[in-house]
Design a protein around this nucleic acid. Structure first.
Length: 263
DNA sequence: ATGGCTATATTCTATAGA
């Protein structure tokens, strides 16, 4: 197909790259993102389906782990260049949640922020520690004259407008004041929450859990975010959610979310 | 307050996700 005039960068929590590979390939074929950040691979490095992704026309870098977590960045007709594969600041953190690459001229940080449930507790403490490390690292990137994008599953519902019904989730780690304050602190460095900025009056959900027919009822959450730095923000032209992917049989509970940039 | 569903490894039961 003819190349899109804009550069599309997407984020997609696949909830298991092995069971979701057919959906991933169908999505890449139909939407042709230039860069795709993936989370929740739930696969080791050796289990990553490198050949199928290459055959689809994508280069890839990935950080795998047994059973849980795992992140990857795919680049269309190009190879991503690794910048870092861990978030600095906690030496014995072995969870595969961050991958930073140069891709199509943009520095992209692929993020899988800890869920943090149940809270309070050690998992919530880990989430807040991880968030602080992200904030510290992001500070070194935000003022770059080069374009930088933070993209991924942040496990943050930024405001009550970003969820179908906050009452049902008020004790959830994704809605806690500490979680929201950390996200606000990150944005205050100069990052822009693109989907909310372009769509101030629409919820723009990116996640619908598997329970109680939440997808069928459009009872979703907005937790997957794309945050350009000030150098990149002027190039943003559009953003959206590929909801059709969530509607497929045996879908991930997240939908791919993307932004288009001037090339 | 709980459970509803999906995926994984610890596999017929537990853990994690959000």
């Amino acid at each position: 197909m003819a190349r899109r005039k804009t550069l599309r960068i997407a984020t997609f929590n696949v909830n298991g790259i092995r069971p979701r590979l057919p959906h991933l390939l169908e999505w890449l074929e139909k939407e042709k993102p230039d860069v795709a950040c993936l989370q929740e691979l739930k696969a080791t490095d050796a289990q990553f389906p490198k050949e199928a992704i290459e055959a689809a026309g994508y280069g890839a870098l990935w950080v795998g782990q047994t059973s849980w977590n795992g992140v990857a960045v795919l680049t269309r007709d190009a190879e991503p260049v690794e910048s870092r594969r861990r978030l600095p600041g906690e030496r014995d953190d072995t969870q595969a949640r961050y991958l930073e690459v140069a891709a199509h001229g943009v520095m992209v940080g692929c993020i899988y922020l800890p869920n943090g449930n149940p809270q309070p507790g050690p998992k919530f403490d880990y989430k807040l520690r991880w968030f602080k490390r992200l904030i510290r690292h992001a500070k070194t990137l935000v003022d770059s004259e080069h374009p930088v994008l933070l993209a991924g599953d942040f496990n943050v519902v930024p405001t009550d407008f970003d969820i179908y019904n906050p009452k049902h989730w008020r004790r959830d780690a994704l809605l806690q004041p500490e979680t929201r304050e950390a996200y606000a602190t990150l944005l205050a460095q100069g990052w822009t929450d693109t989907l909310r900025e372009l769509y101030p009056d629409e919820p723009m959900f990116t996640f619908w859990d598997y329970f109680r027919q939440h997808w069928e009822r459009d009872a979703g959450l907005r937790i997957d975010h794309l945050l350009p730095n000030p150098a990149l923000w002027p190039r943003v032209r559009a953003a959206g959610v590929d909801r059709w992917v969530r509607g497929l049989e045996k879908a991930s509970d997240h939908a791919p979310t993307w932004i288009d940039l001037d090339r």
